[in-house]
Amino acid sequence: MNTKEILNAFPQPEGKILRNIDKEACERAVEQIISGGRKITREIIDLILEPGNGDDIRPRHAIHATAIRVGGTGKEIERNSFASALASTLNDDRPKAVKGFVIRQLQICGGAKQAEAIAHFLNDSEEHLYEYSAQALEVIGGATIEYFRTAYPSAKGAPRITILQGLGLLQDKKSRPFFLSAMQDTDLEIRLAGIWGLMRISSAKDAELMLSQSLKEKGWGRIKATAYCFELAEKLAKNDQSKEAKAIYIRIKKSHSEKQDAYLRETADRGLVQLK
């Protein structure tokens, strides 16, 4: 099958939806894409356009179908081969929106070998590439932490909080200084991402700082920061650090004495009971 025949296996909308789809034809086409290697993959990617610039429903469908079908046990070689072919297109002179689509497919089938190509976009604000890049790296996992660490110091705006959040999601203990610094930021959401990051790495020694910061916050900031303190207490309790967890619950009880904070005192009491 050539590229055109492969793509013709996938449906065009009828009555706005993809109602007539031939499963066997699509599966055969996916096999052809996998066996066709980098050449076929690149030819299909070449047909993907910026949104609004023409009809590329079939090429997008074909690439996605392959990304999801190469997953699972026993398909490691095919998966790496296809993901490498996808990643190779990220170096090309293509519209950023097309690269965004490719990165989203690598979130499904990419691995550590494709991480460097994906990480190149961690600080790229165009077409939300930073977001797609971070999310793909996050699902690939711990092997990608260094890319986040490297990208964070120079990050600004939306990429900055995304990368910081990625470090928290990956529970990177070495990023503790980043989280501590973020907690002092002028931007509320950065401060919250810092507190969340410290919670994610179960940083018992920073519990007091987190609690103090939660008390400085107002409104939404206080709601979320207090929640992260509760979550830290639960994580510490699970890690056999009951003494540290207890200190958090007691501090929250004492520091939230307003009537409208009754539910927080009750929450702390429940946490204390769980420790016993």
């Binding site: 997953g71 971070a134 909080i161 959401e189 919250l192 969340w196």
Partner: peptide
């Protein structure tokens, strides 16, 4: 035994949501 399927169970959220 399906790491790729597991990626769909807890996909990362867009910041600042988590």
């Amino acid at each position: 035994n399906d790491n790729e399927a597991n990626r769909f169970l807890n996909p990362p959220m867009s910041a600042p949501w988590r």
